Each structure stands twice: as structure tokens, then as C-alpha cells.
Computed example of a mutant assay.
Amino acid sequence: MDLYIGLMSGTSMDGIDAALVQFDGDTPTLLATHGQRWPVPVVNRLHELCTPGANEIDRLGRMDQLVAIHFAQAVKALLAKGPYRPEQVRAIGSHGQTIRHRPEQGFTLQIGHGARLAVETGIDVICDFRMKDVALGGQGAPLVPAFHQAVFGAPGKLRFILNIGGIANISVLPGRDDQVLGFDTGPGNTLMDLWYRKHKGGSYDPQGGWAASGFVSEDLLGRLMKHPFLAQSAPKSTGRETFTLAWLELFLAERPPLRPEDVQRTLLEFTARTIVDALLPQAEGQAAELFICGGGIHNRALMLRLYEMLPGWQLDSTEALGLHPDWVEAIAFAWLAKCFINRQTGNLPAVTGAKRPAILGCLYPVD
């Protein structure tokens, strides 16, 4: 059996997704999954590290190790769910935890110490998937469109895959490998999660219920929609350091106070509009198939808004294509690990802007 483990912790920092995957060529079979929440103190320290501050190198070094230890715990819990042993797994593909994403400055940084993870699990680890693409002049993101094409592409049929994590991104799958496009559309859950965290204390707005209780401020929405990232042409990618709570609060300070729930509803509308504004030009005004994955699919208020804004489109979960929406990204990083082992390229220059296709990742062997 050709077994791989994919590990994903996204910009939402809501937890670790671990997936045990068997591949037949590019076709994945999901054998086991494990979801593990980050402990609150760890989340707080990760949030602090994402904001420039004092003593960053020491804090980074400590968190690099700690994230790897939590990843290892997730791997062990995953394997405990079935009759699988570490020596049966060819490799772990670890996304790591993004702390900075600055492709315009030539770097991106994900922590989760690969060597520590290999030692703790007894399994070879492949990580740092984004760095080679950035070194080749690319964005290093999004990397999932190549995987989406491999598993979701349909000859002669236009499909869109929408991943709503902390940041939202789309993959445009026109049916041919050489025509695939993809880019970040802007914030997914990140601003909504930050605002909810500030006012409610939880990590996210369950099913978008709090947002649904509010009203859109067209004034605030109009100012948010002027963010320069939204006007950039692809290739483009972004991160939580671009769409921050401090950025939002600059606008809130300029006008009379809004009810917190109205801000939350406006942030939901901001996410929905930036997604739709990215999709429609790629579809050239035609209704198309849109399959959704990522944590945002559980925000019922956001899903309802997308249905309303895309009349005539076929909207569904990626489960309709055979993969549960909660595990698509973790499976994608298992696939990228498989590509590394088989010496296959994992990036699409048309998506990331890299100078050429490249084998992505760095290997940290157990021995």
C-alpha cells in the first residue's frame, strides 16, 4: 500500500487536520482522519507570533518545536484509529503553520519543525512546500489547484473549486492541465473569526448565526472593498497579516460606532462579495459548477449568501466529487508528499507565477 499522511493547519488556526491517505496514481482513498483543536494558550501564542513584536526569534524557535510536537500528537492519534503502524506510512506531508506570507518580499514562513516531527513520529517528513516556488519568483500559493485538477478535473467541463479557510482561494479547472488557474480571493473566515473572538470569546461564529442577526453597513463594506489586493491581477496570494483586526478597526474608528453584530454581518458580506467578484470574470458571465471545501462551508449564513449571489450556478460540496470538504487540504498535502517522493512537480506556474514547474518540499528522514 502507498500510504501517506497529510497535515494541515490553516490561517484560521482553529486546529490540526490529519488525514491518512492511500493513493492509486493520483486517486486518493481516505482511510482515517483526525481533527485536533489547538489548546487556547498555543493559539494565543501563535496569534502573537503572527504580529511583529519583541524577541521574535526566541519565540519563533520555541513555537517551531511546540507546533511540531502537537503535529506529532495528531499523527499518533490518527494512526491509533486503525490497524496502521508508522513504518507502513511512506511519508508525512506537513503544511506547517503559516506565520508570515510575504511573497512580494521573497519569503514565506511556515513553522512545525520537520526534523522534530520525524523524530517524534518515526516517519519521514516532507514540509516547506512553498519555499521552492517562492525562490522561483512565485507566490508559493495557492498550491492546491494542481491537486484539484488531478482529482476533480473533468475533460471538456468548466469547474470551480472554492476553498474557504482563513483566506479564500479558487481553482479554475477548464478541463485541461495547461489551462488551470487559481488565486486567493481575499479573506475567508479570518476577519469574521477575529471579530467574533474579540466580542464573543470563541474561535468562530457557529453557522454564521451571529452574523445573521446583524445588518450590512454599506459604508463600511465600501471602504473594505477598496483594499488594493482585490484589484491586483493574478497570480496573487495573501495572508492574515494583510487582512487584520487592526486594519478593520482603522475604518471603524473613522465613523460612528456600529453594533458588533452589524460589523460581523458586513464582514460576512465582504467575504462573499470578494469570492463572487473573483468567480464571475473567470466564468465569463456563464453559470458554472462550484464545489466548496474548507471550514467556511459550515457557515450556513455565508453559504446562503453565495447561493443568492450566484443564481443559476450549481453549488455543492466537494463531497459530491468524492472528497469530504473538511479534509481536502490535508489530502492535498499528502498528495504533495507523494509528488516529492515520486520526483514529480507540484506547482503550476500559471497559478503561482513561478519561473518553472518544480518538485516542492524538503525531506527530513527518520534515519
Rank of each mutant, 00 (worst) to 15 (best):
L3K: 11
L7P: 15
D14M: 06
G15H: 07
L20Q: 11
F23Q: 10
P28W: 00
L30M: 07
L31V: 07
T33M: 03
T33Q: 12
R45P: 12
L46W: 12
L46V: 01
N55A: 12
M63R: 10
D64R: 13
Q65C: 07
V67C: 13
V75R: 11
A77H: 15
G82V: 04
Q88C: 05
A91K: 15
P103R: 00
Q105P: 12
G106Y: 08
F107C: 04
H113M: 04
H113V: 00
G114E: 11
L117Y: 13
L117S: 11
E120Y: 09
E120K: 08
G122N: 13
D124S: 09
F129E: 13
R130N: 13
Q139T: 08
A141E: 12
L143T: 11
A154P: 01
I170C: 12
D177R: 11
G182L: 07
G186A: 02
P187Y: 00
L191T: 12
M192Y: 03
W195A: 02
W195S: 06
D205C: 03
Q207L: 04
W210P: 01
V216A: 05
S217K: 11
L220Q: 13
G222F: 07
S237P: 15
G239D: 15
L258W: 12
Q264S: 02
R265S: 05
E269K: 02
D277P: 01
E284D: 12
A288I: 05
A288G: 15
E289H: 14
C293I: 10
I297P: 12
R300P: 01
A301V: 02
R305F: 01
S317L: 07
S317A: 06
T318I: 07
E319M: 03
H324R: 10
D326E: 14
A332Y: 06
F333A: 03
F333C: 06
C339I: 00
R343P: 11
R343A: 01
T345S: 10
G346F: 03
L348E: 09
P349G: 01
A350I: 01
P357A: 00
C362R: 15
L363S: 09
